[in-house]
C-alpha cells in the first residue's frame, strides 16, 4: 500500500509540473493565478500522502490544513488586488475605455 501511495504522489507531482507550464507561460495574470490555485490543491493531497508514507499522519495533517487555508486566502488576496485595476493586458485597447461602462457584459 505504501508503494501505491508513492506512485500516486509521483503522478500528482508530474501533474504539478504540467500546471507550472501554464503558470509560467500563461498570457494574462489571471491564468497564472488559476494555475497556482490548482497547484495548491494538489499539494494539499500530496502532503497527506507524505504523511502516510512516513507514518506521521498526525503531524502532516495540520500542515496540510494550514496549506489549504493559506492557498484559499492567497487566491482571494491576489484577486482582490485586481478588482479596482482596469487593464491587465499591457497595450490592450480596453485600457482606453477606462471610465466607460463595463464592456464584457454587452
Amino acid at each position: 500500500m505504501i508503494n501505491f501511495f508513492l506512485w500516486i504522489g509521483i503522478a500528482l507531482g508530474c501533474l504539478v509540473f504540467v500546471c507550472l507550464y501554464r503558470a509560467s507561460v500563461g498570457p494574462t495574470v489571471m491564468d497564472r493565478i488559476v494555475a497556482i490555485s490548482v497547484i495548491g490543491t494538489k499539494t494539499t493531497v500530496i502532503l497527506l500522502l507524505m504523511g502516510f508514507i512516513y507514518s506521521r499522519i498526525d503531524m502532516f495533517i495540520d500542515i496540510s490544513m494550514g496549506y489549504a487555508i493559506l492557498n484559499f486566502i492567497g487566491t482571494l488576496a491576489i484577486s482582490k488586488f485586481f478588482y479596482s485595476r482596469k487593464s491587465i493586458i499591457p497595450g490592450s485597447k480596453y485600457f482606453a475605455e477606462r471610465g466607460q461602462k463595463n464592456k464584457c457584459l454587452s
Binding site: 494574462t28 489571471m30 493565478i33 488559476v34 490555485s37 490543491t41 494539499t44 497527506l48 495533517i61 496540510s64 490544513m65 489549504a68 487555508i69 484559499f72 487566491t75 482571494l76 484577486s79 482582490k80 485586481f82 478588482y83 479596482s84 485595476r85 482596469k86 487593464s87 491587465i88 493586458i89 480596453y94 475605455e97 463595463n102 464592456k103 464584457c104 457584459l105
Partner: peptide, 28 residues
C-alpha cells in the same frame, strides 16, 4: 474537515478570480 473546507473554498476562489477578470474587462 479538510475535504469539506476544500468543497466550500474552491468554488469561492473560482468566483473571486472570475470577478477580478470581469472587473479588468478581459473579453471572453
Amino acid at each position: 474537515f479538510i475535504a469539506i473546507f476544500i468543497f466550500i473554498a474552491n468554488p469561492t476562489a473560482t468566483h473571486a478570480i472570475s470577478k477580478a477578470g470581469i472587473d479588468c474587462e478581459v473579453k471572453p
